[in-house]
Design a protein around this nucleic acid. Structure first.
Lengths: 173, 173
DNA sequence: GTGCATAGTTGTACCGAACAAGCGATTGTA
DNA sequence: TACAATCGCTTGTTCGGTACAACTATGCAC
C-alpha cells in the first residue's frame, strides 16, 4: 500500500526531474488515501447530534474568527453561498448561531456564535483533539508540529494556486 | 485564517499537556481546511471525462497493486462493497477494467485494469502530478518528502487506530 | 449431493453540495 | 423624491457519491 509507485522504471531517471515526479505522485496518493479515510470516519460518526455535521465547520469559523457575513463565510470555507445559507439556518434554529444586523450594511446581517454555540463547539473540539492526540500518541511533538506546519503550507499553497486550473487529485480518488 | 487557535489562554499551560492540545487542534483545523479545499477542486473539475470520478481511485488501485477481488478492493479503499460494485461496473463498461475468473475461488472474479485503463490512468496521474508539482514549485524537495512521509505516517496511524471509536474531525467540518 | 456460507448486485434512501432563479431591501443617481 | 440597478441572501431543483439492507446465485465443504 504505502509503496507502489508503478510505471516509470527507476532506471530511466533522467536528471532529478523524475525524483520530483515520484514525490508528487506520492503526495497525490497520500492525499487520496487520507481524504477517503476521513470521509469514511465521518459517515460512521454521522448519526448522533442534531445539527448537520457539515455545519460545524461554520460554527468553528464563527467561534474562532468572530462574526461574519454569510457570504464572507461561504468564501472563507470555499462553499457556495446557498449551501452556507442552509447550514446557517440550521445552526440558528438550534440556537448555536444568531443573526445580528450589520451596522455597515442594512441589508446584510452578521452571524455570530451564541454562548451555547461556543459551548457545543468547545466540546466537539476537545473530542476531536483527544482523538487526534490518540492517533498520534506515539509521535513526538516535533513531528506533530512538522506535520501541521507542512500541511498548513501545502493547503495555503493550494489556496493561492490559481483556483481556475484545478486539475488532479480529485480526478482519481 | 492560518492562525486562530481560540480559547485556552496560552497563559494557562500547565505542564506540556496543553502544548499537545494546541498541536492537535491545529492538525484538526488543517485537516478540515485541506479536505474542504480539495473537495471544492473536485467539484470544479468534475465535468469532463465519461467515468464517474470516484471510480478512478479504484482504477488507480488496480493499476498500482494489480488485480483484486471486488470486496478486497472495497476494503482497501474503505468503501462499501455496493459502492465499489457500481463503480467497477462503470469502469468495465467503458473498458478500463476487465473481469477475470479467480482461480482461487470460482464464484469470485478478479478485476484487472486493461491496457486502456492503464493508459487513461497514467494520463490522469501525470496531470495530477504536474498540478502538485506546480502547487509546490517553490518547495525544496526535502520538504516535499517530509510532508509526504508525515502524511503517510498519519494516515497509517489513522487506519490502524481502532476504526470503531471514530470521533472528531468530521464533527465540525 | 446438499445445506450453507459467501461474492457480488440491486433497490432505496440520504446527505451534502452546486447552480440558477428569485426576492427584497438599499443604495445611489436623476 | 422616485426609480433603477445592485447586492445579500434564500429557495427550488438536481446531481454525485455513498451506505444499508435485501437479494441472487454459485461453488465450497462436509
Amino acid at each position: 500500500m504505502n509503496a507502489a509507485v508503478g510505471e516509470r522504471s527507476p532506471l530511466t531517471v533522467p536528471e532529478g526531474v523524475d525524483e520530483r515526479w515520484v514525490t508528487s505522485d506520492r503526495i497525490g496518493l497520500q492525499l487520496i488515501r487520507l481524504i477517503r479515510l476521513i470521509e469514511r470516519q465521518r459517515v460512521i460518526k454521522a448519526k448522533k447530534e442534531g445539527v448537520e455535521r457539515a455545519a460545524y465547520v461554520l460554527l468553528a469559523r464563527l467561534v474562532i474568527e468572530g462574526p461574519h457575513r454569510s457570504n464572507a463565510l461561504a468564501e472563507a470555507v470555499h462553499s457556495d453561498p446557498s449551501t452556507v445559507s442552509r447550514q446557517i439556518a440550521a445552526l440558528v434554529k438550534v440556537g448555536f448561531v444568531e443573526r445580528r444586523p450589520d451596522p455597515a450594511d442594512g441589508r446584510a446581517c452578521l452571524l455570530a456564535a451564541t454562548a451555547e454555540g461556543h459551548r457545543v463547539f468547545a466540546a466537539n473540539r476537545d473530542l476531536r483533539n483527544r482523538w487526534i492526540s490518540d492517533v498520534t500518541s506515539d509521535w513526538d511533538e516535533t513531528d506533530r508540529e512538522r506535520l501541521v506546519d507542512l500541511m498548513d503550507r501545502f493547503t495555503t499553497a493550494l489556496e493561492n494556486h490559481h483556483e481556475s486550473d484545478a486539475t488532479g487529485v480529485e480526478e482519481d480518488r
